[in-house]
Nucleic acid binder design. Structure first.
Lengths: 199, 199
DNA sequence: TGAAGGTACTGAAGGACTTCACTATCTTGC
DNA sequence: GCAAGATAGTGAAGTCCTTCAGTACCTTCA
């Protein structure tokens, strides 16, 4: 057991920089009091404050959730992208997954997958197997060790997910998925999103 | 006008790697069909699939929104962190802001703010003014050029925010803020979040 | 007043990710 | 059957961010 986290908590620069003040508005919805204070009384219209608050919350949520997962995974000798790659291979295909497919699952560039798989291969968790059907490509497969580690990591990650989403009801979780997917669609498919808006 | 984005759109590796298939479930809530397909029929319980979907959507939403903003800002010669720093200074204090305060606003480490401010100073958009009240510290202030640029960038960013949130109603925007803030609180203040859960 | 500990900032090193440029291979259409 | 163009993967270089370590300065309290 390494006491990295305990030490880190004491060290300047490592402390948790973002410390929002969670307050409920008159409808019972949470907001970050510090941020709202900064923005109010400066001639910014109400809608824009609402927009800025929501988008800021989404971006920060994505970040802190990722960091939260990373913390646990580090104890299992994995980074978050490494873990996600193992999951991609586990769930993507029994026969191994092409680098490009991993990139799509992770939502990163193929070049980045090269680096992640390099690291996983160095750890002995995956192997690159030449694809007989396409001599440019590899199938990336889990080794026995990789299988074992990914199962263990998945178990703790499952607990983390529960911890993070524990305060949300089943309905709220679905709402959250829906609203963030709407945001993603607005960015990825502006036209489709507009049509929906007009109905 | 540089045609960076047009060229990039044609180049392999630069294409949009994550291309979700947006589908509505029977309640009218959006989900990513490709991801759900990967996970179903593999002995994963329904709750965990729901959790994984929601968290994945949050993380991706944070990422794509950031990228979307970045794209526009690049045309104005600013990165997203640079822009956010300018905003922090504009809204944080008329008299200039300490590096540490900027770090808190941005939610990054003080060390990182040093680098961002270095870049902004090199661009001539801000200046470090020694703080007479604390000789360790600087007040970072906008220059006239920085003022001008930040106003212009703010205008386009406002339009971007509207574009991204355009498909959400006012109520949905508040819901989104609320749910993501709940997530942030669950990570940042696990105890407080648990209490709420028990009421 | 002066030692102990905390705070503001920065250098060095490193991780994750990106774009650009390149090789090797596959696919298509004439 | 073969040239033109697409696709799979990687090297090089650069960005943003991190942690760790170090300097200068402030604050506190005996």
């Amino acid at each position: 057991m390494h006491a990295v986290t305990d030490e880190a908590a004491l060290r300047p620069g490592s402390e948790d920089i973002y410390r929002p003040r969670f307050v409920e508005d008159d409808e019972g919805y949470l907001y970050d009091c510090g941020f709202r204070d900064m923005l109010t009384g400066r001639g910014i219209d109400r809608d824009q404050v609402a927009a800025a608050e929501a988008l800021r919350a989404v971006v920060i949520a994505g970040k802190v959730v990722t960091q939260r997962f990373e913390e646990t995974l580090v104890k299992h000798g994995l980074t978050h992208p490494q873990f996600r790659t193992l999951m991609a291979i586990r769930y993507g295909a029994e026969t191994g997954l092409h680098m490009h497919s991993i990139a799509i699952w992770l939502g990163v560039t193929p070049r980045n997958v090269t680096a992640i798989v390099d690291a996983l291969e160095a750890l002995g968790l995956v192997t690159r197997v030449p694809d007989p059907a396409d001599r440019r490509a590899f199938k990336v497969k889990l080794t026995a060790l990789g299988e074992e580690r990914s199962v263990a990591a998945m178990r703790v990650n499952k607990a983390d997910q529960r911890a993070v989403l524990g305060t949300l009801t089943t309905e709220e979780t679905k709402q959250l998925r829906h609203l963030t997917m709407k945001l993603i669609r607005a960015v990825k498919e502006p036209e489709a999103a507009k049509e929906v808006r007009q109905k």
